[in-house]
């Protein structure tokens, strides 16, 4: 397949059975619909022509080599690129059928409903309690703050570890605990979607197992999108996986493109594009 060909989609090979663990495509609820999405930084086209649907209560993983635009892409979903002066998002991204980039849409409200966790845990220099309560307070969520904090910490599977020291500094926690705290902080504002940009890459080798377990738990109530360099992590936690790569154009310009998007089980057993195969088997990237 040449680099300009359309990405491979689910059902490209009707002979292959869909994963029995997933609902069939026609039964899936689309949370994000992406059509022809692109990201520019100034005049540089960082990512182009992305088409895919993100499904409710799925974990969707974006994988690909460095510079393929997967982090730029995940930031489109909560309009975080709006905060970069030179960034420009093209194409259409809908959220539950509504244009996410319509002029009337409030980006702050978008970020309340679409929470994000970053590569490096970034707790505020405040207590554990205040970290979780921060979002609800800023958003003016009245009443039941203690319950909201507890629920968020429980959902992030860290309540038992911190319930007796909620007033201690969040920075006193281990790296893995800090990351789960940040997940709890994102959950405290009752989001619908959780974006995770390489959430385990800065953690020790043990902590990711808890984060991965947590992702699978969170899937029951939330839609999760995760960017990861760890292909085995994608294979373990994701229902759907999108593989991006880099095309090098004239003058060495590097632009990310979506190569293949399919059920994770199929991406890791029978990818349809040779570039995906080369990447997941470690022959490229």
């Amino acid at each position: 397949m040449d680099a300009t060909a359309a990405p491979i989609r689910i059902g490209a090979d009707p002979g292959m059975a869909a994963s029995p663990a997933l609902p069939p495509p026609e039964a899936r609820e689309i949370v994000f619909g992406v059509r022809g999405a692109s990201v520019h930084y100034g005049t540089h086209l960082a990512l182009r022509d992305v088409d895919l649907d993100v499904y409710r209560n799925f974990v969707t993983a974006f994988i690909g080599p460095s510079g393929c635009g997967k982090s730029s892409f995940i930031r489109c979903f909560n309009r975080l690129n709006d905060l970069i002066p030179t960034a420009r998002v093209g194409g259409q991204i809908t959220y539950h059928g509504e244009d996410l980039y319509a002029p009337a849409v409030d980006a702050v409200e978008v970020r309340q409903r679409i929470g994000m966790v970053f590569q490096k845990p970034n707790p505020f220099p405040k207590s554990i309690y205040d970290n979780i309560a921060f979002g609800p307070r800023v958003l003016g969520m009245k009443g039941g703050l203690d319950e909201r904090v507890e629920q968020a910490l429980q959902r992030a599977a860290i309540w038992d570890e911190v319930k007796d020291r909620l007033k201690t500094p969040a920075l006193s926690l281990s790296g893995g605990q800090q990351q789960r705290l940040c997940i709890a902080r994102a959950l405290a504002t009752d989001p619908d979607v959780l974006l995770m940009d390489e959430p385990c890459s800065a953690l020790d080798p043990i902590a990711p197992a808890k984060i991965e377990e947590l992702m699978l738990e969170l899937r029951r109530d939330f839609t999760v999108i995760v960017v990861t360099h760890n292909m085995q992590q994608a294979a373990r936690v994701a229902d759907m996986t999108a593989f991006f790569t880099v095309e090098v154009g004239d003058e060495g310009r590097r632009t990310g493109i979506l190569i293949e998007y399919d059920e994770t089980a199929r991406m890791f057993t029978n990818p349809q594009d040779s570039r995906t195969e080369a990447y997941v088997t470690g022959r490229f990237g």
Binding site: M231, Q232, F268, T269, N270, T281
Partner: peptide
């Protein structure tokens, strides 16, 4: 090695 795709097959 956790093989995948053709390697796994």
């Amino acid at each position: 090695q956790a093989p995948v795709a053709t390697d796994l097959r």
